[in-house]
Simulated scan of single mutants.
Amino acid sequence: MGITWTTDLNTGIEVIDNQHRRIVEYINQLEQAALRRDMPSVGRVLEDLVDYTQSHFAFEESLQEEVGYQYAKPHKAVHEMFIKRVSGYQQRHAAGENVIEALHTMLSTWLIHHIKRDDMAYVREVGVKAQAATQPTQTGGWLGRSLKRFFG
């Protein structure tokens, strides 16, 4: 069963909420490909999901760093563990193992739990700062500041 976005998943930071919605879309696409038993599509969607999620994590981690979130390092460690788990599923899928049901359950459960617990925790602490940091009116905007940080 697909994930339905509900208002209790909104963090109040529009850019983060939009990214979370996109991850939900990928998880639902994964489920649709699995229902069609279209294993090549499952692999492609899984790859896209991992790529997008890693970009989202990098964005979120950079934002947390910029606003001085005190639990940024543990939050990043949670992200790293998630990517490691999903990579394991990717490898098993590539080896021909049917991991779709277990993967979908893990993704759905993890995402909802992560948003409601881990992400909401940083929103309470840095929500206003985070909202301001993502506004393009800030010097260089988030993207410019991040590119400078990542690429000098």
Results as ranks from 00 to 15, higher is better:
23 I>S: 04
16 I>L: 15
131 Q>H: 08
50 V>Q: 04
99 V>N: 10
117 R>Y: 07
51 D>Q: 07
134 T>M: 15
45 V>M: 04
41 S>D: 10
29 Q>S: 05
105 T>C: 07
30 L>T: 00
61 E>H: 07
128 V>A: 15
131 Q>D: 07
100 I>S: 14
72 A>Y: 12
99 V>I: 08
107 L>R: 04
71 Y>G: 02
75 H>E: 12
143 L>Q: 14
17 D>Q: 08
31 E>K: 01
89 Y>G: 10
94 A>T: 07
119 D>V: 03
25 E>S: 07
125 E>D: 14
89 Y>K: 10
109 T>R: 14
36 R>A: 11
90 Q>T: 09
89 Y>E: 06
39 M>D: 05
27 I>C: 04
56 H>Y: 06
113 H>V: 01
43 G>P: 02
71 Y>R: 15
104 H>D: 09
75 H>F: 01
13 I>D: 06
36 R>Q: 13
22 R>W: 00
70 Q>L: 13
145 R>Q: 06
147 L>P: 04
45 V>T: 03
80 E>S: 11
34 A>K: 09
100 I>H: 14
66 E>W: 09
121 A>S: 14
28 N>Q: 02
40 P>T: 04
76 K>M: 06
132 A>P: 03
109 T>F: 07
112 I>L: 12
111 L>N: 07
36 R>P: 04
110 W>G: 08
134 T>R: 12
150 F>N: 11
93 H>E: 11
15 V>N: 14
137 T>A: 13
142 W>N: 14
38 D>P: 00
108 S>R: 07
57 F>V: 03
119 D>G: 02
115 I>M: 05
94 A>I: 00
104 H>W: 05
39 M>Q: 14
36 R>M: 08
8 D>P: 03
146 S>T: 11
136 P>K: 12
73 K>Y: 02
2 G>D: 01
98 N>M: 08
73 K>T: 13
112 I>K: 13
62 S>G: 15
70 Q>H: 11
136 P>L: 02
